[in-house]
């Protein structure tokens, strides 16, 4: 096994899968000549040619719509959208076609496309390079959604997404692209969609998180260590959700804090809380508490540390719950 940064693990997965399956085609803005603005696709154009690693015109609806047609022509497109907030022009195609076309053919046709994009804040960037748009994707019938927190999962989940017969959106936490570093299996490596990861075991309280917030959850667990034994659960696949893992942890600790970077209202944390309310209410010793971004536009970066869920905010929520 090699040590890699998260973004390098993405790159590794693309190399392995393009080698393994010659119908896999990478496309997006600046993915070819320069290898992507985060270098996630570096080397692919040299290795597989400009027809399989395609610099597209600057047109996200075009990328997403063309990917639908490419599927019909027998390809497995892996589309890079350059940033979270720049994925929105593609929503029309995603919602109206990507998520519905299989259904519209009575299941006769697969649309095995992947959309991957860097997402999330904390990177001191100008406006609109910081969004956490996962809810829009999770809310779209017909697409699956995964978010890795570690390099190994970045490789394994992307590989699973590429091989999946359904459209999968993979959001990559750009904040930890080049800080999350870890062992990544060589060659083919699959992390099945729909399985959460137990980051650490504990008895008193569960913190549920995904993406860059897993690190914040772990930081809070450390901070609480002298007072409580904290379990951390990384959801990894937002849809389909590993309900079993969530409910098992809730049953064990009886206390759940959910951390999400996106604005609060109707965010993914609300879905997790609803599942807990429906299926774990009698296991709970206190309210499910969400620590989230706020219901306002992501602020300019001088203020972003105040907006993003912090270790302090998670510890505060956990303390309230432990003392409930």
């Amino acid at each position: 096994m090699a040590e890699r940064f998260l973004v390098e693990a993405v790159n590794d997965a693309l190399h392995v899968e393009m080698e393994r399956d010659e119908t896999v085609l990478v496309m997006g803005e600046d993915v070819g000549r320069v290898g992507g603005v985060f270098r996630a696709t570096a080397g692919l154009r040299d290795r597989f040619g400009a027809d399989r690693c395609v610099d597209t015109p600057l047109a996200e609806a075009g990328i997403m719509g063309a990917a639908v047609g490419l599927c019909m022509a027998g390809w497995r497109p892996v589309c890079e959208l350059q940033y979270d907030a720049f994925s929105y022009p593609a929503l029309d195609q995603l919602i109206n076609h990507v998520g519905r076309y299989r259904w519209r053919t009575g299941g006769a046709m697969d649309f095995p496309l992947v959309v991957r994009m860097p997402y999330g804040g904390g990177v001191r960037a100008p406006e609109l390079h910081d969004d956490s748009p996962e809810t829009y994707y999770v809310h779209t019938p017909g697409v699956k959604v995964a978010i890795p927190a570690t390099p190994a999962d970045a490789k394994g989940l992307l590989t699973a997404a590429i091989r999946d017969p359904d459209p999968v959106v993979v959001l990559e936490p750009k904040l930890v692209y080049r800080t999350a570093r870890g062992e990544v299996p060589e060659g083919e490596h699959v992390v099945p969609l729909g399985e959460a990861r137990l980051v650490r075991e504990g008895d008193d309280l569960t913190i549920v998180a995904y993406g860059a917030m897993v690190g914040v959850a772990e930081g809070a667990a450390d901070r609480l260590a002298d007072r409580a034994s904290v379990e951390v659960l990384d959801v990894r696949t937002l849809k389909p959700l590993d309900e079993e893992a969530l409910l098992a942890s809730a049953a064990k600790t009886g206390r759940v804090v959910i951390v999400q970077e996106a604005p609060r209202t109707a965010g993914y944390g609300a879905e997790l809380a609803a599942v807990l309310a429906e299926k774990a209410i009698l296991d709970l010793r206190g309210p499910v508490i969400r620590v989230t971004g706020y219901d306002v536009p992501y602020p300019y970066w001088k203020l972003e540390d105040a907006y993003m869920p912090s270790v302090e905010r998670v510890v505060d929520a956990a303390t309230r719950l432990l003392e409930f």
């Binding site: 803005e29 600046d30 070819g32 000549r33 320069v34 603005v37 610099d55 597209t56 015109p57 600057l58």
Partner: peptide, 11 residues
């Protein structure tokens, strides 16, 4: 240029 994408690949 659009970042690294030349006009010839744009239109």
């Amino acid at each position: 240029w659009a970042i690294s994408t030349p006009l010839s690949a744009q239109t």
